[in-house]
């Protein structure tokens, strides 16, 4: 999950998620940095609407409430 947290942190800071920025954040956190996984992350995130993905996560909770309220 560290790689994703790093990506989210960079995204929310309004910066671009690049190999370099991810590596810098991971290094600052004292995480082991695996070049291949960083590359994989960058490529996986290509085309992903992070804002939407975050919003979905937030939305899931209240939706869960519906059955309880029924």
């Amino acid at each position: 999950m560290q790689y994703i947290y790093a990506a989210l942190l960079i995204y929310k800071s309004g910066k671009e998620i690049t190999e370099d920025s991810v590596k810098a954040v991971l290094a600052a956190a004292g995480a082991d940095v695996d070049d291949a996984r960083v590359k994989a992350l960058i490529s996986a995130l290509d085309g992903v609407d992070i804002e939407e993905a975050i919003a979905k996560a937030a939305f899931a909770a209240p939706a869960a409430a519906a059955p309880a309220a029924a």
Partner: peptide, 18 residues
């Protein structure tokens, strides 16, 4: 919990292997 769910959701959306 929220941060974790967001990260999980982003991982899912990107199909990134954790």
């Amino acid at each position: 919990g929220k941060a974790n769910a967001q990260a999980t959701s982003v991982a899912k959306a990107s199909k990134y292997e954790l």
